[in-house]
């Protein structure tokens, strides 16, 4: 819908090699993000959402993590094959990341001002100290924090304010892509909406594309242009927001949407998805969702289904042809 392709991930595979076995965290993820658009990445805890976001910036701790395979093209250049020097130019400048827990994501012994100035300074060698500070103050104001708090330390801020500081750091260099890893999960519900609105406003103003990681389908519905559903390290369904919400094709997506409480439907009980996600050290050979799936047949456990196009860029990884309506 919006602009040309900015990020293209091809067949990304990431594993964690631990003493208890190999964790197959990402098993061939491909997706793309266009300029200025927001992609929602939805999945349960442990589905590989954070691994994917960290993988894009090569922030996976090695060991135990290891990028086994795949390519991450950002503006045509493969991030995974870049030199460290080039990678440092991309991080925080062209692609930046907001982490899940604001309480632990800021350095406790540096003032928030120093932490914002630092990212500006490292990517703008020509600026003087005063100019850097001015920019940091401007950024702080943009996220709704008054300038006189610039010399305070993180412990003097509340969780929501800390997350605003982290967003200020992430957006300080006007990035083309923002990776937001559950930016509101750790916050109070009342603050969540504020912070989310602010991210949305700023990214629209700056024409920044965003991958919004969330397990909250409500948040995704409010913010995203496209949605990718991830399960056990694979994208199981992706498409436009409307296609996914109105016409879900994968039984897992159907299940996720059914498990949202609704005031308009007359349901007494929520419909949770039965069972748990498979152990990522020991994935089943076929479709990883098959053991929990209402539509599963013997064919499902033979091989992992391919992503197939159901029209209009709506890709589904399922051998059945179900529609959301039948599932209910």
């Amino acid at each position: 819908m919006n602009g040309k392709e900015l990020l293209k991930i091809e067949d990304l595979e990431i594993r964690y090699e631990t003493d208890d076995g190999i964790v197959y965290a990402l098993n061939g993820v491909s997706l793309h993000v266009n300029e200025g658009e927001t992609l929602g990445l939805v999945g349960e805890t442990g589905a590989g959402k954070t691994t994917l976001a960290k993988g894009i910036l090569r922030l996976i701790q090695t060991p135990p993590g290891k990028i086994v395979n795949g390519k991450v093209y950002f503006e045509g250049k493969n991030v995974l094959a870049m030199s460290d020097h080039d990678l440092h130019q991309v991080r925080g400048n062209a692609i930046s990341m907001v982490f899940q827990d604001p309480m632990t994501s800021l350095n406790p012994v540096m003032t928030v001002g120093e932490q914002i100035e630092e990212v500006i300074a490292v990517h703008n060698n020509s600026l003087s100290k005063e100019e850097i500070r001015e920019r940091a103050i401007a950024m702080l104001k943009r996220v709704g924090i008054s300038a006189d708090r610039i010399d305070e330390y993180p412990h003097q801020f509340s969780g929501g304010m800390k997350q605003r500081v982290i967003i200020a750091i992430a957006l300080a260099c006007n990035p083309k892509l923002l990776l937001a890893d559950e930016p509101t999960t750790a916050l109070d519900v009342t603050i969540q909406a504020q912070v989310l609105d602010m991210i949305n406003k700023l990214k629209t103003e700056m024409n920044t594309a965003m991958i919004l990681i969330s397990h909250d389908l409500g948040v995704v519905a409010q913010t995203c242009d496209r949605v990718a559903i991830i399960y056990a390290g694979r994208i199981v369904e992706t498409g436009n927001l409307r296609d996914i919400y109105k016409n879900p094709k994968h039984p897992y997506t159907v299940g996720l949407l059914d498990s949202i409480p609704s005031l308009t439907r007359d349901t007494k009980r929520l419909k949770p998805i039965k069972g748990l996600m498979p152990d990522p050290t020991n994935l089943p050979s076929g479709c990883p969702f098959a053991p929990r799936c209402n539509y599963a047949s013997s064919a499902c456990s033979e091989a992992v289904p391919e992503l197939t196009d159901r029209g209009n860029g709506h890709l589904v990884r399922c051998i059945k042809d179900i529609s959301g309506k039948e599932g209910q």
Partner: peptide
Amino acid sequence: QDYISTARAKGLDEKVITKRH
């Protein structure tokens, strides 16, 4: 710690991260 990941995501050099963070 998480703030080390934040520092890396800023594009800082490992030497700076070791020293400053």
